[in-house]
Design a protein around this nucleic acid. Structure first.
Lengths: 218, 218
DNA sequence: AAAAGTATGTTGGAAATCCAACAAGTTTTT
DNA sequence: AAAAACTTGTTGGATTTCCAACATACTTTT
């Protein structure tokens, strides 16, 4: 089990915890590792969650079904990322599914054990809580920024809001983004082709320069 | 200071902490209370945040300015609610403003002190961390649901997604919501009048019944 | 009880988005 | 190196949303 943990020791959740503390952590937080084949379900909608996951290897997908039963992908989980923590701490049943899209290994941690330090108040506990607060807060900031973009009325405004936030993040008028056109359109909640057209217009109007994933605000 | 705390002792953050523990908490977390007149700024965009706030009395507004300088209200803070915690824990500068829209009293707590229990590991610390994790996770779930609604392409789908989520929350096909039409339109990111028209259509098509804040899914 | 203010529904033309289809360029596979 | 698969940009008509203006109902103030 320790060998598996080594693979993710620089993940945001475990970062800063000494190697010699890892094994006491495993016991203290009732850690278990589970393996999933491609296509298997990791968390089902309706599950009561009291553990959250840290993906060690493979790839997962968070999906959701709307009122008509249409499936949509909410996010993709890569190794070293955590998932399910929000539902674990609000103590609600999950409204999302998590599925393995590759053969995967997941470390589950007991959410209650993590937030309630044991009597001897192990030092790694403090660090874990800090890391977890950081991670969830960070997700909140990102969700808020996505909402900021999506709240704009026109595609042009959505694009400019997104690009301006990216520019701030990169502290420069020039930057590259990690999304391709389709992913960006999905992120902003608009049609890819309409967005492409709008990008061209922004370019022709001399407001931006761009090529592939590279952008420059003028 | 203790008297002020009494007013918010059933807030989600402080809930479950014994009265006799409150005073040691005040010291341990370097609490300070600040007062603001109507119109005063509580947090400025660009501020480095290492404390977060618990509103004791009054009313605050979280606002943001887009790339053109247009102001928009992100949320309204009522007494007993906390604010600024996301920026405090990601250790980034705030990208939002918080302003008092009524004469207000705010309790500030040191975010670092809260997440790093002191040597004696006071019991209230554990409870605070739990409460904080609950609060942030809950915001996370709410933001995700808002995004789920806003991601829908048409106003009709946005409405039905929202209503279906409310129905699940209330565990019933019939329920009342806390938003008026304008607030609902803002929440979904659409035009009020267009949304009203869409609601009428849903009613005529026999998909829902509604009157004011009361809704029934058929 | 009248007046003013607020919330909601309705409507029609202007504007924006969606959608489907295709062209051109790029990357990956064979 | 050719073929296949994928990505991006373009276009035009159908659909949807926005916007502004107004009617009606309900609430609050005077």
């Amino acid at each position: 089990m320790i060998e598996e943990l080594e693979k993710v020791k620089d993940s945001i959740l475990i970062k800063g915890i000494k190697t010699q503390e890892l094994s006491s952590m495993l016991g203290c937080l009732r850690c278990v590792i589970k393996k999933y084949d491609k296509g298997e379900t990791v968390i089902s909608e309706g599950d009561k969650i009291n553990k959250f996951g840290l993906l060690i290897e493979g790839k997962l997908q968070v999906v959701q079904y709307d009122y008509l039963g249409n499936k949509s992908v909410v996010s993709v989980i890569e190794p070293k990322q955590i998932f399910g923590e929000a539902f674990a701490y609000v103590d609600k049943i999950s409204s999302l599914d998590v599925e393995a899209i590759e053969k995967s290994k997941v470390l589950f941690l007991d959410s209650d054990k993590l937030s309630t330090p044991c009597e001897n108040c192990c030092t790694f506990h403090k660090q874990l809580v800090k890391n977890l607060l950081y991670t969830i807060s960070n997700k909140n900031v990102n969700l808020t920024q996505k909402i900021e973009c999506m709240s704009q009325r026109t595609t042009k405004e959505k694009l400019l809001t997104f690009l301006s936030l990216e520019s701030i993040k990169n502290n420069s008028k020039e930057f590259t983004i990690s999304l391709d056109r389709q992913a960006l359109a999905d992120y902003l909640g608009v049609e890819r082709s309409a967005m492409s057209a709008e990008l061209s217009k922004l370019r022709n109007d001399g407001i931006i320069e761009c090529e592939k994933n590279w952008f420059k605000l003028l």
